[in-house]
Nucleic acid binder design. Structure first.
Lengths: 211, 211
DNA sequence: ATTTTTCTACTGGTTTTCCAGTATATTGAT
DNA sequence: ATCAATATACTGGAAAACCAGTAGAAAAAT
């Protein structure tokens, strides 16, 4: 019994990956790659007129970031299934993507099997996450420190200035506030990030990509 | 006039990229993809017995890092041309790769044209760097701070401990040396990395992947 | 409109870092 | 065997960071 094939859209700015995906999917008659795009803008304007069943979406596009893309795509076509694709696995990004509505997520070292599996599962309305992605999601739950304490705008600003090696006084001058205030910010930052000096403050900030 | 085709070896742990490369290269009769490997170890043992003209080498392999791979490959087969492949462009890594002997370097968003160009140039003994890579190299020259000052083993150790937020005293206890000595190390580190406090010390250390 | 959060700012005191210079024992290299 | 680099350690003094607690004004959220 032959179903009509699942229509795929590939969105990725790497020709190698586009061709690779096409080849990997060409063996399987359940799926058909409709077309591909190398940036977000073109993809969105295509979706205004036409649609697809499942979109393979690279997270690192040149123009629009992956998380926003998910929202925008679902805004136009609420029924498409989106599968996120990225080379490396960043828990925070994956989490955001899921929150915004992706139904699947694969790393680019996924096999053809995983790929087809993900597509058919997502097309049926289910979730599908690659084995490595699942591990990451599990870790981020057990670590439970994934929910990074939210810093205020001002705090982030001060943090970056500290990272640039500026002293409390200099920062104060630069922001037109009292050095005492700057110090308060620094102290609050250290408390929020659970460290006890500026050096490790910078370390965790870099680790968690806050700056 | 038909030359015999250039024999290519693909080394990459992403099936999508492998297939993509094969497809992109299949249109051109000047090149033939011999085979592919998904890790460094297999590649090296293959090269012990057989060879190739040009190797397309992913920088981020699961087992052996790209920079080492270059050395090891050229150790076995001094005559192969190696073209580095990576998704993102990190000047320091690219520089090291070149120092170790790669003849070309492309980002994974390279076009089929660039790819074939790179291969034929490298095969003829020339260098070939993708346009984006060239820009990076140019930048890193003008910045001229690419040559990272070499830290001693002890200094690196102290640096990581500082990054962990430990105080001079604690570090001293941990390493069974006087806190005064630790301070000397810290000062030397700051001087070498041209910063004026521990916070920015950590920042540049992280940036340059010293820890 | 009112509560909460954020940003601002202070006092006063302790600890640590930062600076400059010197010096010796131990490695490592030629 | 000798020279250079590294790791060790000190003095003494200035600057900055760190700690604890308080508090008013502005902005955001409810």
């Amino acid at each position: 019994m032959q179903h009509k094939p699942i229509h795929i859209l590939i969105v990725d700015d790497h020709p190698m990956v586009i061709e690779g995906l096409k080849t990997l999917l060409s063996d399987d008659e359940r799926v058909t790659v409709k077309t591909h795009f190398v940036n977000g803008t073109d993809t969105l304007s295509y979706l205004e007129k036409d649609t697809a069943d499942v979109i393979l979406l690279d997270v690192n596009l040149p123009d629009i970031n992956g998380v926003e893309m998910v929202t925008k795509i679902l805004n136009i076509r609420a029924n498409v299934g989106i599968i996120g694709l990225s080379t490396y696995s960043e828990p925070s990004i994956i989490n955001q993507m899921i929150k915004n509505g992706v139904k699947g997520y694969l790393l680019k070292n996924a096999t053809a099997d995983e790929l087809v599996n993900a597509i058919s599962q997502v097309h049926e309305g289910n979730f599908y996450f690659g084995s490595e992605v699942q591990k990451i999601l599990a870790d981020s739950v057990t670590q439970e420190r994934t929910d990074l304490p939210k810093l205020t705008r001002r705090e982030k600003h001060v943090l970056t200035l500290i990272a640039e090696g500026k002293t409390t006084n200099t920062i104060g001058e630069e922001l037109f506030i009292s050095p005492l205030t700057v110090e308060t910010h620094r102290r609050n930052l250290m408390q929020k990030l659970e460290v006890s000096n500026a050096a490790s403050l910078i370390k965790v900030a870099v680790e968690r990509k806050l700056i």
